[in-house]
């Protein structure tokens, strides 16, 4: 009798084991879908739609393999540069020419006479309107990563993320001086560039603005390298710059307002000339998550032209 009980007990346990295995294998139960350690990023990416003052008007799909830089030329023609080539579009999105060159263009500028300055890795190449090479400047240094170019009437400003410095050249590529070197006496804090996002642009009056992305600020320098003013706040909120190196790009509207773009939380925003947050151009939901390098340009009608390298589009936003 006692023996029977033992056998039954043992058998029941054994059957339990097999039952557990069987049901676990074939039940097809859904796996745990809650993450106790979830980092709810969705909340941060949400924006108030009332703050979005712009709407997308037009999308251009360039044929280039990669696109990295955009500039608005005279006659509101849109220049898009990327891997091995450049394409030009009219303001309404119709193609208006293209030419090719070797290398990956990371930044571009056009001067008054229509000369195109293209930054390729560590050097600048100059082309005329039809793509004829008009000069190749020598490499700044092998560590250089050129991320932005701006041209004024007399000189060319080039931002080098690798060396964390801005160079001022004359129009023929002769180095005049360097801007933004750390200098406690002049109260210049130096650029903190943690990754190759380092933009500069010329303001309404031709003054030089540089994005000190590591400090999340925009700084205004004189040609001699004197820091005149700076603004910017690190914050995940809508009015600040958030993440590793933001604003990654910026441009100016005609009233002197700043248009900025960010990575991390992909968004394009407008700040007043004093650096106060004004409105959103494109909320994070307008971009594919993980988009980096939203280069910006503004045309004569204050349309904001955004280069979306992830979707490979040039997207034009206008005021609602």
């Amino acid at each position: 009798m006692k023996q029977k009980i033992f056998i039954i007990a043992g058998l029941l346990l054994l059957i339990a084991v097999i039952g557990i295995m069987f049901t676990d294998l074939f039940s097809g139960k859904k796996q745990e879908q809650t993450n106790p350690y979830d980092y709810k990023m969705g909340e941060i990416r949400k924006t108030d739609s009332n703050q979005t003052a712009y709407t997308e008007l037009l999308t251009i799909k360039p044929a280039l393999v990669e696109i990295h830089a955009i500039v608005n030329g005279d006659g509101d023609r849109i220049y898009v540069a990327g891997k091995n080539g450049l394409e030009i579009y009219k303001g309404d999105g119709k193609p208006d020419g293209n030419f090719s060159f070797e290398g990956v263009a990371s930044c571009m500028a056009i001067d008054k006479r229509g000369k195109i300055f293209i930054g390729i890795q560590d050097h600048v190449e100059v082309f005329d309107q039809i793509g004829k090479p008009a000069g190749k400047w020598k490499s700044v240094s092998p560590e250089s990563i050129l991320t932005s170019i701006a041209v004024s009437n007399s000189c060319v400003y080039v931002a080098d993320a690798g060396k964390k410095i801005v160079y001022r050249y004359d129009l023929n590529g002769r180095l005049i001086n360097r801007i933004g070197e750390k200098d406690p006496q002049k109260n210049v804090p130096g650029f903190i560039i943690p990754s190759p996002y380092f933009d500069l642009a010329l303001g309404k009056k031709g003054e030089l603005w540089i994005a000190n992305t590591g400090r999340h600020s925009l700084e205004q320098f004189s040609d001699e390298g004197v820091l005149n003013s700076a603004w910017g706040e690190a914050s995940m909120a809508i009015d600040g710059f958030c993440g590793c190196c933001n604003p990654s790009h910026f441009a100016f509207l005609h009233d002197g307002s700043f248009v900025t773009s960010e990575k991390g939380i992909e968004r394009v925003k407008i700040y007043s000339p004093k650096g106060e947050f004004t409105c959103i151009v494109a909320p994070p939901s307008a971009f594919t998550e993980g988009t980096r390098g939203l280069d910006l340009a503004v045309d004569s009608k204050d349309r904001i032209i955004v280069l979306d390298p992830e979707r490979k589009q040039v997207r034009i936003f206008v005021k609602k």
Binding site: E66, H68, G82, K83, V104, S106, Q121, I145, T147, P194, S195, P196, Y197, R292, G293, P309
Partner: peptide
């Protein structure tokens, strides 16, 4: 090289 990991062609880290 910076950028190769994310395939963004030299403008990334």
């Amino acid at each position: 090289r910076p950028g190769t990991a994310a395939k963004k062609g030299g403008v990334d880290a």
